[in-house]
Structure formats: C-alpha cells, structure tokens
C-alpha cells in the first residue's frame, strides 16, 4: 500500500499475528480515514475479531505497526499498548458477544465509559467535596444524554441484564460513545437482530457518525447493512485482506465472490 494518507485516523501496516504455529493474521494493511465508515467482512474464522483484538491492545501483534491519530492530531504507535490506554486514546469498541456489566444499571454502564475522562479518586469519593459532586453530576447527566441518543432513557435504572437483546446492543454503543472516541469499533453490532432492528441500527450509526464526529470501523455479516452503510470495505479470508474498495467494487470482485460462494469444482 501507498503512504499513509494525511487524514487517516488508524493505519495498520504489514501486521501479522501468530498464535504459536498458527498465523491468524498475515501482513494486513488497513486504513480508516477521518469520518469514514469502514466495514471489515469475511467468512467465519477469517481473523476479523483477532484483528480487532490486535488494534485494541488485547493482543500484541507479532509483526507490523498500528498507528492511531487521536483528536489532538498526534500519531502514535499503539501495538501492544494496554487496552485501557488505547481506550483512553479514543478507540472504543463493542463486543461480538455482548459484554455489559450485568448487575449494574443501564445508566451506570454508560457512566463506566466516562471513567477515563474523569479524575475523582479515593479521597474525593470518601469526602465528596463540591468538586467531586460537580463531576459526579456531570457524569450522570452526560451518560443520561447518551442513553437518550440510543433511545434507552426509559430504562436508565433497569439492570443491564434485564434489557432485551437489541437494547443491550445499543447500550454497548452508548457505553463506547461515553469514552469520547475518535474511532468507534463495532464487532457485529447487528448480530441476532431482526431486519427492522438492523435498519434502526443503521440509521443510528449514521446519526452517531454525524453527531459525534467519529469514524466507524465495523465487522458485520449482514451484507445489506454493510453495503448500504459503509464508505469502504475490506474483505478478509484466512487472515489476509483479499479485497478492498467501495461496496460496488468489492461486490464485483471475483476473489470475494469465490471466498463467499466457493469455487466451481469443475469448469
């Protein structure tokens, strides 16, 4: 790939990930530009979630470089950076298998997202001075506003485990947004949703991108959603990127068709 473009918020160069003898990702080049919605698709086991884990610090990639450009305009190398620092930098993610804090309320789940943007410590918590109280109230109000954005304000005080599936997905997005990210990473946000819910989710992602000025990188299997939502698509198979381009380019690519539909055994 060519030189990193100036408006790239995330650029991955030549990244590989080995688990022992297994090469899960091999020489992946990847780029997300400012304000873009980029989709990462591919058959099961292609390495999409591994890719997510590599760029969010859960795994340290074996080779290659991951560069992130935060809102302050500085570009940092984030391979193997601690997960919480990656999040603090401004890359917030959701999980394929929902990972909410079950015994906390919906509002509190979002408030957790504010953790890295607030400073109150142990003594502040015990003595609860005016500064602490102001910060607490700000956290509550901002979190509530985010719940309004994803349409969950009516269940703010419900426990996360009591929410229906679709609501849990939206709550995860709200929680990620609470960390004030520049890049939102969604791991199969529409999994298990019915067509109506998927459509609403799509509208929500478009609105969020506009309103919070974030770039979005999503892994998704729902092709209708991917094709209509994303600006660019990366297709992975067996840990390699096999195609890149606009939805129209990718869907016409013979390699992609082969990966998804299989090869004809006999011509």
């Amino acid at each position: 790939m060519s030189e990193t473009r100036r408006d790239a918020v995330l650029s991955v160069r030549n990244m590989s990930m080995n688990f022992g003898g297994l090469r899960a990702l091999s020489e992946v080049d990847f780029e997300v530009r400012k304000g873009e919605v980029v989709a990462l698709i591919g058959p099961n086991g292609a390495g999409k979630t591994t890719f997510f884990n590599c760029i969010t610090g859960i795994y340290a990639p074996t080779e290659g470089e991951v560069l992130a450009t935060a809102r302050d305009g500085k570009t940092r190398r984030i391979n193997g950076m601690r997960t919480n620092l990656v999040c603090e930098l401004g890359m917030a993610r959701t999980f394929q298998n929902i990972r909410l804090f079950a015994s906390m309320t919906a509002l509190e789940n979002v408030m957790i997202g504010r953790h890295c943007r607030t400073r109150e410590g142990l003594f502040g918590a015990i003595f609860r001075g005016p500064g602490t109280r102001r910060e607490e109230q700000e956290v509550v109000d901002k979190s509530y506003r985010l719940l309004q954005k994803v349409g969950l304000e009516n269940v703010a005080n419900e426990y996360a485990s009591n929410l229906p599936y679709g609501a849990q997905r939206r709550l995860e997005i709200a929680r990620a947004l609470a960390t004030e990210p520049f890049l939102l990473l969604l791991d199969e946000p529409a999994a298990g949703m019915n067509p109506q819910e998927t459509l609403e989710l799509k509208e929500m992602v478009i609105q969020i991108r506009h309103e919070f000025d974030v770039s979005v990188l999503l892994i998704e299997h729902d092709m209708k959603m991917v094709m209509s939502l994303s600006d660019r698509i990366y297709v992975m198979e067996y840990g390699r990127v096999i195609a890149t381009g606009t939805p129209a380019e990718v869907s016409a690519d013979p390699e992609v068709i082969r990966a998804y539909l299989g090869e004809e055994s006999d011509a």
């Binding site: 919480n84 990972r99 804090f101 079950a102 509190e108 957790i112 997202g113 109150e120 410590g121 607490e136």
Partner: peptide, 21 residues
C-alpha cells in the same frame, strides 16, 4: 463513587472493564 463503579465493572467483566478505559 467512580472508584466503586470501577470495582463493580471489574467484578462483572474484566475484559470489558479494561476495554472501557
């Protein structure tokens, strides 16, 4: 408090807790 909520999040899901900063 902020600290207490972080503890609870830690108890509920360590990976998600760290991924949320």
């Amino acid at each position: 408090s902020r600290v207490g909520r972080a503890w609870l999040a830690l108890r509920e899901d360590e990976i998600a807790c760290q991924a949320m900063g």
